[in-house]
Amino acid sequence: MVPTPGPGAAGPPPYPVIRPMLAVLGPLPPGPEQAGWAFEGKWDGARCVVNAPGDGTLHLVTRAGNDATASYPELGPLGEQLRGRAAVLDGEVVVPDPTGRPDFGLLQRRMGVLNPRRTARLAMELPVQLVLFDVMYLDGPLTAAPYEERRAVLAGLGLAGPNWSVPGYVAGHGQRAWEAALHGGLEGVMAKRLSSPYLPGVRSTDWVKTKYQETLDVVIGGWTEGRGALGGLPGSVLAGVAEPGGLRFVGAVGSGLSDHERRDLAQYLSVIPLDRSPFVNPVDLAGVHWAEPRLVAEITVSGWTAAGRVRHPVWHRLRPDLTRLD
């Protein structure tokens, strides 16, 4: 929800409460249809609706409706660029790693922090970038206008600063956008129909997100117990990759496991218990059951964090053909 004006404020903000439009997950539109679509990079960050009443201030609202203004003080000067214009913008807050690529793990250190001293310190250590990609209100509603028109309005605002930007889009060339996104370390591509209106709070097929996925073979070195109906069964397995220095822990994988696969894993892991960690690096999880690193699994991931952990791991299958029996 839009924050309530503070003491002494003249009244409610001049713009309406606008919830973010949502996308469906799917492949890029077929080649013959791509002429009617725009393609943007998909940023791995936190969605934010930017509310600027035109008085030089700025209010940031998360997708869940929480006020995030105090968490990102370095974005405040954007309000001055919008002084005199009541505006509601859509964007993504990201934190780039040392190579300039968005790192959600770094962003998590900024999210939800409200203490002014701490936010000021973090703004120096881990400054955020606000990537703006839509405008829903500018001295009047724009949600009914087509995407192409809204993007032209957004570009016309000339918004540029040390902590915010308005990246362009590619019309009609999905593969070119896909290759550019992967080269830039982005999560994938957002395809948006050029003629589509902005539908607040709606998950629409006019917006399609296509994520990059990498297939990876990992060695299982332990497991943690599931909750509720999964009690006694693996809720997640601990994945590692073999390196010259030993088996390195890269994350826990629970998403994608079926009940049948959990039962099979429980049986397999019960005969190869271990009284110590098989990983050469620390595992920051509680209640771990260690296992001899013999079972190999195939998972999909969307990338790697700066700490060397897999991002968004999803179980695919056990690989008996690669099981380590040595």
Rank of each mutant, 00 (worst) to 15 (best):
L25K: 10
T57V: 05
D55R: 00
T69W: 04
E92A: 05
A46Q: 13
M21A: 04
Y72A: 05
W43N: 01
W37D: 00
V88P: 05
P98N: 11
Q81V: 02
T143Q: 08
M111Y: 14
E125S: 13
G31S: 13
D134M: 03
G100H: 07
T99N: 13
A68I: 08
R118G: 10
R109F: 11
V135M: 07
R63K: 15
D90S: 04
R101A: 14
L25M: 13
F104L: 14
V17H: 14
Y147N: 02
L60N: 04
E33Q: 15
Q108A: 14
R118E: 15
W43S: 02
E74Q: 12
A38M: 05
A46P: 03
A64W: 09
G112P: 08
F39K: 08
A38Q: 03
V131K: 02
L132A: 05
N51A: 13
L142S: 02
A87L: 10
N115F: 08
D134E: 07
L106Q: 15
Q81N: 07
P146E: 03
R110F: 11
V61G: 02
V94H: 01
A38K: 00
V113Q: 06
E74K: 04
M124S: 14
A38P: 01
P27D: 09
T119N: 12
R101Q: 15
T143A: 10
P53E: 06
R47V: 10
G65I: 06
L58H: 02
L60S: 08
D139K: 02
V17T: 14
L82N: 00
Q129Y: 06
A123R: 09
P116T: 03
Y137G: 03
L130D: 05
V94C: 09
G31D: 13
T119L: 10
D55N: 09
G76R: 15
L106C: 09
E92S: 06
P96N: 13
F133G: 01
V93P: 06
A86R: 01
R63Q: 14
L28Y: 04
V50C: 04
A144R: 12
P30S: 12
R109L: 15
E92D: 13
A68L: 13
A64R: 15
G84L: 00
M111S: 13
H59D: 13
P127Y: 09
Q81P: 06
P98Y: 11
P30N: 04
H59N: 11
R47Y: 08
P102M: 11
M21F: 02
G56A: 01
A120N: 08
I18A: 00
L106D: 10
Q81R: 14
P27I: 07
L126F: 06
L58Q: 06
P98E: 11
W43L: 02
G91Y: 04
L126E: 10
G105H: 14
Q129K: 12
V24N: 04
